[in-house]
Design a protein around this nucleic acid. Structure first.
Length: 496
RNA sequence: GUCCCCAUCGUCUAGUCAGGUCCAGGACACCGGCCUUUCACGCCGGCAACACCGGUUCAAAUCCGGUUGGGGACGCCA
């Protein structure tokens, strides 16, 4: 068996979005699974819209996701001569023809057809021009484009799709499409095929929005006498209103970098993406890289499109809840040693990183992550909700402040008392830190919860968190005592 | 308008090719309970779907036909 060769050919007209990322992922998975190669090819022939910034964005997006490629990035514009040569060859062989119809006339016609709800294909005006007529128009200096001459055959043309099965279409339904612009440069349909032939691409995995392109490209493969690759058209990802996801209409929320910037774990996001249109046929949803490569097959890709269920402006679910859920599962079950460098980046970005966390205090750092990660959704939570573990200047949430502190005026004396007793402790351990507030509560004849919840508020700033005594021991006597004594300030600030 | 594709809980999906084991399974979300000083996690339970109409068959989510609905494409974009 010959080597499988796949490609991911983004056009650099914007950032990498989740649809493109999923396509890249599927190609990558299949290449890995079959021991083949993945080629990255930047399709930058649309010079009007291509930007270097987009190229950078796409490269960074792929890198963040961990989607690696074996060849490239190649740039389509580096092969312009080849594309043009192919068009000339088709022209010379009578498989293509010069068309002198002006863009303006065609545009007007198309618009009229659209308005009249009529068929909007090319009418083949120039297909049967005699050589004399062509020569005459050329002599007159009329600009022309080159169109592919769709064979005049009865019957159907088609291909076997790995996802959808046999796809067929009548020859008569296919327009004589343009392969070369009037400025002499080639168009997508042609460039893409010429490049795929040169790159010896064996499998093309792309979105279902390319299906009509494939039908026409099948003709091109035949005309260029090249073997047809295997096609797999994967379902599209739609928004909640069932329209195609695009950079233009959805913005950041569909950009890969949005997920990087919102504290997603790269592999967790891949894990979410792969499930949008593919399933293993078992109940397994969480996959390691190796597991996924092993489990992935083209045959199990879904036929129907899926909805990316993001909700704008929802405070709890800023994107698809399933994506968040999968991220959480990774967050709390992954190897802490693997998680640590990711949290390190977050801390560094907030100026909260301490070199000792990889030195003397590494053990403390890892234990802290292990304790607090259960409640977090993204990596961002370590520096927001979890700020109190890494800094002394953390904010106190209003809710616990009202509910657990300001409600009891007496805490102004209770907490300092508690702080004093803690200060006296020889051994600041789990048993002792729990005994002290419980005894104090009994003396004061109040529920221990009052002291404990107030402590939580003062020590972490949060309403919720891990077991209080775990936290106290983790933070250490000094910090705890210091924070408990701040209670005065809270009342003072509240009364202002 | 023409062509192509698709159709199972709110969402992601299993089951469809090889009809019976499916009054349809899992996950997310939601609701309730347990646990807990808090909130989560965890555990237990609940809500919730075969688009519709015909046909084939002893038997249809599954096969066939139609209808409806949804999507995609129809560029000198990619």
């Amino acid at each position: 068996m010959t080597e499988t060769r796949l490609r991911f050919p983004p056009s650099p007209t914007g950032y990498l979005h989740i649809g493109g990322a999923r396509t890249a992922l599927y190609n990558w998975l299949y290449a890995k699974k079959t021991g083949g190669k993945l080629i990255l090819r930047i399709e930058d022939t649309d010079t009007e819209r291509s930007t270097d910034e987009s190229i950078q964005g796409i490269l960074e997006g792929l890198q963040w996701l961990g989607i690696t490629y074996d060849e490239g990035p190649y740039f389509q514009t580096d092969f312009t001569a080849e594309h043009v040569a192919a068009a000339q060859r088709l022209l010379a062989e009578g498989q293509a023809y010069k068309c002198f119809c002006t863009k303006e006339r065609l545009d007007a016609k198309r618009e009229a057809a659209l308005a009249a709800k009529q068929n909007l294909g090319y009418d083949r005006t120039c297909r049967n021009l005699t050589p004399e007529q062509v020569a005459e128009k050329e002599a007159a200096g009329l600009p022309f484009i080159i169109r592919f001459k769709v064979p005049d055959r009865e019957g159907m043309l088609g291909y076997d799709d790995k996802v959808l099965g046999r796809i067929e279409c009548n020859y008569k339904e296919v327009d004589d499409f343009v392969i070369l612009r009037s400025n002499g440069t080639a168009l997508y349909l042609l460039c893409n095929v010429v490049d795929d032939i040169r790159d010896r691409i064996s499998h093309i995995i792309r979105g279902q929005d390319h299906m009509t392109n494939t039908t026409r490209q099948v003709l091109l493969y035949e005309a260029l006498k090249a073997p047809l690759p295997v096609f797999a058209h994967i379902p599209l990802t739609l928004d909640t209103k069932k329209s195609k996801i695009s950079k233009r209409s959805h913005g950041e929320i569909v950009a890969v970098h949005f997920y990087r910037d919102h504290g997603f774990i790269p592999w967790a996001f891949n894990n979410f993406l792969v499930l949008l249109g593919w399933s293993p046929g078992t109940d397994q949803e969480i996959f390691s890289k190796e597991e996924l490569i092993k489990a992935f097959t083209l045959e199990r890709i879904n036929k129907s499109s899926s909805i990316f269920n993001f909700r704008r402006d929802d405070p709890k679910f800023f994107t698809d809840p399933k994506a968040i859920s999968i991220n959480e599962q990774y967050l709390r079950s992954m190897d802490i040693a693997e998680l640590a460098p990711m949290v390190q980046k977050e801390l560094e970005a907030e100026g909260l990183w301490d070199e000792a966390y990889t030195g003397d205090r590494q053990d403390w750092f890892l234990r802290t992550l292990g304790l607090i990660r259960d409640r977090f959704h993204t990596l961002k939570d370590f520096t927001s909700l979890g700020r109190a573990y890494f800094a002394d200047d953390f904010g106190i949430d209003d809710k616990p402040l009202q509910k657990n502190v300001l409600k009891y005026e007496e805490l102004k004396s209770w907490l300092p008392t508690l702080a004093n007793r803690y200060e006296q402790l020889e051994s600041f351990d789990l048993a002792e830190t729990e005994r002290v507030p419980r005894e104090l509560a009994e003396e004061l004849d109040i529920k221990p919860g009052i002291l404990i919840n107030a402590m939580r508020t003062l020590v972490t700033g949060q309403l919720a968190g891990p077991s209080m005594f775990d936290i106290l021991v983790l933070l250490g006597k000094e910090k705890v005592v210091q924070r408990l004594r701040r209670v005065d300030r809270l009342f003072a600030a509240a009364s202002r």
